[in-house]
Structures are given as structure tokens and as C-alpha cells.
Design a protein around this nucleic acid. Structure first.
Length: 294
DNA sequence: ACATAGACTCGGGCTC
DNA sequence: ATTGCCCGAGTCTATG
């Protein structure tokens, strides 16, 4: 269930082993719905004998570039893993696509829940159009205090669902949203345009810090996530709030709370992340009528 | 007063 | 049950 750090960790582990390799064949598609804009036949005919020239990432998409400017964009959604192993090794269950390389390694897309998707594009322009209509600024490389402030301005939505909206900022998911809001000491239900300049700066810095630290630990592995070498990450040992309901806040010792926001669990420290006023919005009260709580 | 558009929330669905 | 995300329906708000 990768978010940005898990995709970035996978890209980094794949890059030195994929770049320079030629595709010998594409096979093993057993679930055509995972290829919304292509087919096994088209992948095989267009990628065979093409050389990989880049392995990158944008938001939660892994991007593989080939020497004729064709591109693959792979989204793992909830349960997808990309594993690189010898083509002679047995394929594990739930493998839905295999890309064989001329060094006899094979890149395999393994996805028990079949939510993951693989897209093929004929040029970087097509790829850029696809990404541009889905993704906001990349939360690791394009997000800073100014960008975040302009994105938040005029938005009434609650912070947590906004951070999960990939067209708002790309790459943050449920786990890292909670970790970043905790680090910035902001309640997930705060309305976006209620943040002070100082709070916006804290949030921008917290997002980048949480993501880059997790990348150094090769991502967070709960049950299924593995990098392309089959190794789990280590960040699960360093989480502050996610999945830690009732356990002490690392900063103040207060038990961590869990609430549901938009059908997703949200974990936070009820003392450090102060709840917004409940009278602030949508109840017809005049501005300034909110309880001033310090 | 009323219509409309856009922002926003919620629930279901995908799949095992 | 879950680290994702799409879609449709309904609500709310600002605007003319």
C-alpha cells in the first residue's frame, strides 16, 4: 500500500538494475482490467527490444522511460508490489504482469487485490498530459511554503481530506498525512483557510520531513509492502501516531486518538493538535462568534 | 425569490 | 481490516 516514500524507495532500488536493460518480452497478463489504455499484445510488441533509459516517480506513480520515448506509468494502489527477480524463479501467486529483460531478470507486478494499474504512453507529452490532469505539485520535490499557502487559500475543506486529494498535492496518503499533521501540530479537521502563515510553514516543512525521512528508511512495511528486492522497509518502527490509538504521544505522552474522517482512520494527539472550534462554519453564526479558546 | 455553479461530504464499489 | 482512488448523490454557499 505504497504512498510516495514507498514508490520512491522502489524507484531507487529498481533504477540501477533496470536502466540500460532491454526488454525481451512482456507476458503473463491474467487480468486485462489492470491495463486501462493498452493490452498485453501492445505492450509486448511496442516494448520488446526497447532499452530502459529512466526509472522515476511522480506522486504515487512509478515511471519507466524507454529509448523511443515510450513510457510506462505504474500505480500500485493498495496491495501492488514490483519485484525484480530471475526469470527462471517461480512466479508467486497474484502476479499479473511480467516484463522479461535481456539479462534474464524479470520485473513482475504482484497485486493480490487487483486495484493496481499499468498505463502505456507513446511520448513524454502524452505522459505529462495524463499526470497533469490528475496530480497537483509533487509533495516531495515541488511543494514549499509558498506553493502550499496558495493552494490552501480560499479552501474551506478540512485539512486531512485535502492532503489526501492527489490533485491538491501529489504523494501524501493516509499514513503520512497523519504523521505530517502530528509533526506540524495541526488537527486533521482544521479548515484549510484557517491556517496562519506560521502554521502553513510548519505543515510544508512537516510534509517534506516526514516523507524524506521515510524514504531514508526505505518506506513503511505493514504486511505486504516490499521493495523490488523483496525487502520490507523500516519506517513502521518510527511512526508517531499512525496505527497507535491509545499509545502515548511521543511528544507529550497523551494517549493517541482515532477518529473517522471521510471513511478513513485518522490518528492524532488530542492535546498537541487542538480541535478547531465547532461553531466556526456552516451554522449561520456571525463571524467572530466562535469561542476564543486561547 | 429563485436558479445555477462550484465546493464539499458521504457512501459504495473495486477485489480478495 | 488496510497505506488508494473513482463516481454519483446530496448538501451547502456564493452569486446573479
Amino acid at each position: 500500500m505504497p504512498e510516495l516514500p514507498e514508490v520512491e524507495a522502489t524507484a531507487r532500488s529498481l533504477r540501477p538494475r533496470l536502466v540500460g536493460q532491454r526488454v525481451s518480452r512482456v507476458h503473463g497478463v491474467d487480468w486485462p482490467r489492470m491495463l486501462p489504455n493498452t493490452s498485453e499484445e501492445e505492450l509486448n510488441s511496442s516494448l520488446s527490444s526497447r532499452r530502459v533509459v529512466s526509472v522515476g516517480r511522480r506522486g504515487k506513480y512509478l515511471l519507466v522511460g524507454f529509448d523511443d520515448d515510450r513510457w510506462l506509468a505504474i500505480h500500485r494502489k493498495m496491495s501492488g508490489n514490483l519485484i525484480l527477480q530471475p526469470a527462471a524463479d517461480p512466479t508467486e501467486p497474484h502476479t499479473h504482469l511480467s516484463i522479461e529483460l535481456d539479462d534474464h531478470a524479470e520485473l513482475r507486478f504482484v497485486d493480490p487485490r487487483k486495484f493496481g494499474r499499468v498505463y502505456l504512453f507513446g511520448s513524454s507529452d502524452e505522459l505529462d498530459d495524463f499526470l497533469a490532469e490528475r496530480l497537483g505539485p509533487d509533495s516531495l520535490i515541488e511543494l514549499d511554503e509558498k506553493v502550499l499557502a496558495s493552494k490552501l487559500r480560499g479552501r474551506k475543506a478540512r485539512l486531512k481530506p485535502l492532503l489526501l486529494d492527489q490533485s491538491f498535492v501529489a504523494g501524501v496518503g493516509n499514513l503520512y498525512a497523519d504523521e505530517a499533521l502530528w509533526e506540524a501540530r495541526l488537527h486533521p479537521l482544521r479548515s484549510a483557510d484557517s491556517l496562519s502563515a506560521r502554521e502553513v510553514r510548519r505543515l510544508a516543512q512537516a510534509i517534506k520531513h516526514v516523507l524524506s525521512t521515510a524514504i531514508e528508511r526505505r518506506g513503511t512495511s505493514f504486511s505486504t509492502y516490499r521493495d523490488s528486492d523483496g525487502l520490507p522497509g523500516e519506517n513502521q518502527d518510527f511512526l508517531s501516531v499512525y496505527g497507535r490509538e491509545g499509545q502515548p504521544c511521543p511528544r507529550c505522552g497523551t494517549p493517541i486518538s482515532r477518529i473517522m474522517i471521510g471513511q478513513r482512520s485518522s490518528y492524532f494527539c488530542p492535546k498537541d493538535q487542538r480541535a478547531p472550534s465547532t461553531s466556526g462554519r456552516g451554522l449561520g453564526l456571525p463571524r467572530g462568534a466562535q469561542r476564543s479558546a486561547g
